[in-house]
Write a protein that binds this DNA or RNA. Sequence first.
DNA 1: GTGAAAGCGCTAACAA
DNA 2: TTGTTAGCGCTTTCAC
Lengths: 364, 364
Amino acid sequence: MAYTATGLENRSDMAANRRVTIRDVAERAGVSVATASRVLSGNYAVPQATRTRVLRAAQALDYVANAHARALVGGGRKMVAVLVRQVTSPFYAHVAEGVEAEAAAHGWLCLVGTTGGEPQRELEFVQLMREEGARLVILVGGVVEDDTYRGRVAQYAQALNASGARLVLCGRPAPGPDIPALVVEFDNEAGARAITGHLLSAGHRRIVFLGGLPGNTALDARVAGYRAALAEHRLPPEAAHVIDSGLGREGGERAMAELLKRRRDFTAVFAGDDMVAAGALRAIADAGLRVPDDISVVGYNDIPLAADFNPPLTTVRTPAEELGREAVRIALRTPQDSPSSRHVLGTHIVVRESVAAPPPERTP
Amino acid sequence: MAYTATGLENRSDMAANRRVTIRDVAERAGVSVATASRVLSGNYAVPQATRTRVLRAAQALDYVANAHARALVGGGRKMVAVLVRQVTSPFYAHVAEGVEAEAAAHGWLCLVGTTGGEPQRELEFVQLMREEGARLVILVGGVVEDDTYRGRVAQYAQALNASGARLVLCGRPAPGPDIPALVVEFDNEAGARAITGHLLSAGHRRIVFLGGLPGNTALDARVAGYRAALAEHRLPPEAAHVIDSGLGREGGERAMAELLKRRRDFTAVFAGDDMVAAGALRAIADAGLRVPDDISVVGYNDIPLAADFNPPLTTVRTPAEELGREAVRIALRTPQDSPSSRHVLGTHIVVRESVAAPPPERTP
DNA sequence: GTGAAAGCGCTAACAA
DNA sequence: TTGTTAGCGCTTTCAC
């Protein structure tokens, strides 16, 4: 019923496919566009009588304001854009959801973009967001930190800042001092140190780090934490064994399978993230070994399904949604001209069933 | 280097925070805004000499066009909006990724919104997209199909259609005949029938459907398929046992645990989706039972981590990303005035290790 | 080939 | 209290 009224009425008293404008509303209400605008945008006192007349006309015409026209005259609109590698990765999805939720809570529009890991698309996205007039751009995820990166991101920051927008880097470093960018990240090193310590406390001495990604800031920090924990337990630097298989389930499975074929002189695996851990668990099971009886495994991120792995995975919880929320919160409360700052979010271990004491020494 | 040039130059020769416009570019290039516009929007032949001069000026000023102004004069811009319940659900995330990918491939901008399951936010989102001038709105996910739903969605469809935009419904029914909306969905009934048949072929006769959601079109179709398969195998209607626990890991775990406490006269569980299956597996393990030796379990959707469950889950593969891609493809190739149509995507079973023959009959 | 001018839909002075 | 007017930044006739 509601729909037929609206739909047919539109169709009958206006040209085909012409969007109804504020002019139409004003005309129907018998007022000027200015008056119509005043009641429709609601930031000006208008007497009740005219008010209702305009509102009624707008409703009858099913009027919606043209956001572009508004943005054009009002100087941009409240929009935040998040860019992630892919939304199908649980970690990124949670960050995006956090951003979206916090943005929505403040009445901001949120746009999610994906790069698939290509710096080129990142550049295009930032450019696009400048065109769209996004007031806040959030770039998520670890990166290879080299001069190219620094130059590129510094450029984003300057450009965005020049038009009054703000750049927030999540889990990636600021490109340099005095660059107008905010940074929010987890203390990856501390998290890695803690979970490596957990493995060491259980008695493990030969622990492999699976899923390194040289140059990637997030992974490098985890590797650093891993090495630091080893050192704290007075193990020599050679005790560290990092396999650079990169992230992803597939990589983890392949690298683990290969490693098991070559050597088995390790009793625990620290996977770079939970997806790598999933792959590793699969490979270990396929090799006929049991977790944690034969090999202990830990992951990183505590994705929702980590509790459903076989066995349930002991991992480091990184509150991804909180990261997203915090990114927009910080950006919204930081004045435009304040110095760039860096915020670090804590993490903690979630103990489940993938860690046990190492098996008794096998005779070689 | 690159960044200091840009940043400082902007800062020195223009008022603070004034976005550079086409006027600035024209001025610097020594041409009129009309000429600048012609080369910048690139849809008009301009001699090479002036062309380069304008381009050089634009680059020097780091000019980006104002998308709002463009949209205002050009009549909207290529933007597709997808609305899902939540991006952190693997299924929805894949649909969103499919939409995003296909949109990007066509040079369209993609905006992802989430409802958290609230119809109210759906309404707000559609309204917002009308304001933003989205030319394509995609609503994803099963719904309770009642008169309220039909009225609401019919209204969206009419309104969107009136301004030349298109509505695509993914996995939810059209609100009625002659409503301008496209529908793309999976054949849930066939998928459910097939996997129930798989269970029946393995010898199961007492199969519980866990995770019903009465009124929800997607789940109802699966339940229908489940009943149909039972009937095909000449089982009486009473053989069907549907537990309406709703979707989600938590619900699945709770319902399964409770069911196991009450009765154990079933040998297999058909979970409404993989997340429910994850919860069910957890509850079964906690009850000291084994899958598939004691109870067989199947899921629905084949999320990426289904292979990492304990045991790897036999489930129905629904190509979610393809659903998203297809939604935009269909919308882009369907002319505005063509009749509303419905497209059905096929699904298939993925056999893994969570199904076995039922255990030998226990004496009661 | 290029410029001047009109106008997209809206808001915000400025008048009345 | 309300209407008139001047743009926001851009594209696009229409002249020259």
